[in-house]
């Protein structure tokens, strides 16, 4: 076997004593990554650290727990999460089946269906709010015209008001989750359905044995992610009820901002920190799902 006589010690390019300094590729990687690292440090890590520092006094928590509004907000938040999200996801699952039906008019409807998600919250939520106005809102006007009765004072009843906030929330975020579940359904190979049809599966059996196993994980992930985001949904409650009547419809998101507006930052942060044990498992789950 031929072997070329190599110059002993090699004619290595200058400066390279074995291990090379950072290659230009690594160097540019760091340079291009740097802006986000700065953003993260200055606009995420510092605020979070500062916030936790503000929430360091045990007294804040005592004061918080003694505030009756806090207890009510926790109950409201849990109710909101459990009811609104499950209804929303179940409807999104059903509608994703509807929207994957091949019809031209359904395609057009799906284009329209996205609107609530694409437009800003504030005008549409205000629109809801005016519809629900007890005196001149369109709903009570219609009730009066057709029954001669006065409609309920929708937003003056805490249970009704919170339920309506959930309706607003579902209206706003349903399109997004439906879209995701549509994508999940479309990823299922058509042959699976064809094979099932040949085997004589009914509509329900096709869903039960093909669709559901294929998108079950996606559905769970969506539910968890939606819980995280719904915890941060300030608009649906604040813009519809403002936390009222009598601060009975606050959720943690609006409560924190309420304390902030009252210049009780320690309470605001304490309200958030108290929620952490609830959120962290959800975040952990999402991190595990996405960072694989």
């Amino acid at each position: 076997m031929a072997s070329v006589a190599l110059p002993e010690n090699g004619s290595l390019p200058d400066g390279s004593s074995g291990k090379r300094a950072w290659s230009p590729w690594q160097k540019w990687g760091v340079i291009l990554l740097a802006p986000y690292i700065v953003v993260f440090l200055v606009l995420v890590l510092y605020p979070v650290g500062y916030g936790l520092w503000l929430a360091r006094h045990p007294a804040s928590y005592v004061k918080l727990v003694e505030d009756p509004i806090f207890g009510r907000s926790v109950i409201n938040t849990i109710a909101f999460l459990v009811v609104a999200i499950n209804i929303k996801m179940a409807v999104a699952l059903a509608l994703s089946g509807f929207f994957t039906t091949a019809r031209t008019w359904i395609k057009w409807l799906s284009v329209l269906f996205i609107l609530p998600w694409a437009v800003p919250s504030i005008p549409t939520i205000l629109s809801f709010r005016f519809m629900l106005n007890p005196e001149w809102g369109i709903i009570n006007s219609l009730i009066f015209r057709y029954t001669g009765l006065d409609g309920p004072n929708w937003l003056n009843d805490p249970i009704l008001a919170l339920s309506l906030a959930m309706v607003v929330h579902v209206w706003k975020s349903l399109p997004f989750w439906t879209l995701i579940l549509i994508a999940g359904r479309l990823a299922i190979p058509q042959e699976h359905y064809e094979a099932a049809s040949v085997d004589g599966a009914t509509r329900w059996q096709r869903f039960r044995f093909i669709t559901w196993p294929a998108i079950r994980t996606l559905y769970l992930t969506c539910t968890i992610l939606s819980m995280i985001w719904t915890l941060g949904d300030f608009n649906s409650v604040y813009l519809l009820t403002g936390g009222g009547p009598a601060d009975l419809t606050h959720v943690l998101a609006t409560l924190g901002i309420r304390y902030l507006r009252l210049d009780q930052v320690d309470l605001a942060m304490a309200a958030i920190v108290i929620a952490l044990p609830g959120i962290l498992p959800l975040i952990y789950f999402m991190m595990k799902r996405l960072s694989r």
Binding site: L6, P7, L12
Partner: peptide, 11 residues
């Protein structure tokens, strides 16, 4: 080596 020149550290 290419052409007798070691290229280990050449881009």
């Amino acid at each position: 080596a290419i052409d007798g020149k070691v290229v280990n550290d050449v881009e």
